[in-house]
């Protein structure tokens, strides 16, 4: 019965128990309004988490991707305003490419100088944020200036409904983009050579090199992938909240990393799955959002996230130790 021993199953069970408990404390949790809202909150953190998952499977860690996301978002929106561009597709391509280019920068440093990814990405994150705020500007592009086609794009809903109080709500179509990206990530991690090379490199870098994987290519792919997803998610976030704030996402990387760890990925590399990450993201978002409907003071949010990170890592550490014996 291997399915019961898989970490995804355990996470799913914990998730269900937590949902039932929260629902008992406040039945409003189960309202369609709240569920749609929760799914919507999954999109941005989830897309970024897919990138972090791939980095963590390769045995690395990335704390710079939020800086890349904000740079991609702000530069793209500023560029659109400057050129008066009115499309949707091209800006997202540009934002993705900005993130990808910055990710390549990470890969270059990590591979060429063999430095610990945490320290490199601390540096690159600070460089990108500093340059963006210092040279490009600190002013927020508000809804009155924000390109309307981006807002309209992010407003598309799959289902529309009206709540008992008469307000309209819907399930955002952006969830399809998130799930589509998750499917693509899952497929390439499982079935392509580059995907297998990431697992191989994360499990044992030296062994991966000796069996003939081009580890430079693997690392380049990993960090570019994380950067590209962050860039894309950055612009999507701007479109969904109707503003481009160059100070956005400060400290958000911790939430994303927490979600990925919660999803069963190991920081030592070689372990992790897309399904686990989807569950981890949902769990983190649900707990954070539900603090409000459980009437817990919002000042406790950070403590709760911290406890979740420590708890989840303690569990994975315990699991990995058992495997070693």
């Amino acid at each position: 019965m291997t399915i019961f021993r898989r970490s995804e199953t355990i996470i799913a069970v914990i998730l269900l128990v937590a949902m039932v408990l929260i629902g008992l404390i406040n039945p409003a949790f189960w309202s369609l309004d709240n569920i749609f809202g929760l799914l919507r909150s999954n999109v941005i953190i989830g897309i970024m988490a897919l990138g972090v998952l791939v980095v963590m499977i390769s045995g690395g860690i990335d704390v710079s991707f939020t800086a890349f996301a904000v740079a991609a978002m702000y530069l793209t929106v500023k560029g659109m305003l400057y050129f008066g561009y009115e499309g949707v597709l091209l800006p997202f391509v540009v934002a993705t490419l900005i993130g990808l280019a910055l990710g390549a920068f990470n890969a270059f440093f990590i591979h060429t100088f063999r430095m610990i990814p945490l320290i490199v990405t601390l540096g690159t994150g600070s460089v990108v944020r500093g340059l963006l705020l210092g040279l490009v500007g600190t002013s927020i592009v508000n809804i009155d200036k924000m390109p309307p086609q981006l807002i309209n794009f992010a407003k598309v809903n799959l289902v529309n409904s009206t709540s008992a109080t008469g307000t309209n709500f819907g399930l955002t179509a952006m969830i399809l983009i998130y799930l589509g990206l998750a499917l693509v990530t899952h497929l390439f991690l499982r079935y392509t050579m580059i995907g297998r090379s990431i697992f191989a490199y994360g499990g044992a870098p030296e062994a991966a090199k000796r069996v003939g994987f081009d580890t430079r290519k693997t690392l380049l792919f990993v960090y570019c992938f994380a950067g590209a997803l962050a860039g894309f998610a950055g612009l999507l976030q701007g479109s969904m909240i109707w503003q481009a704030n160059p100070r956005d996402f400060a400290g958000f990387e911790l939430d994303v990393i927490a979600a990925v760890v919660l999803g069963g990925a190991s920081i030592f590399g070689g372990r992790g799955s897309v399904i686990g990450t989807l569950l981890g993201v949902f769990m983190l978002v649900m707990v954070k959002n539900s603090l409000i409907i459980m009437k817990v003071d919002t000042t406790w949010q950070r403590v709760v996230v911290g406890v979740i990170i420590v708890g989840a890592t303690a569990l994975t550490a315990w699991r990995d130790r058992k495997k070693l014996v």
């Binding site: 911790l254 403590v303 996230v305």
Partner: peptide, 25 residues
């Protein structure tokens, strides 16, 4: 508990900062 230092202190850092927020509001 053999948690990697990066993740352990990332989590506790959130807890300490969070407690600081709770104490000061």
């Amino acid at each position: 508990l053999r948690i990697t230092p990066i993740l352990a202190t990332l989590g506790t850092g959130q807890i300490f900062t969070g407690l600081a927020v709770v104490l000061t509001g």
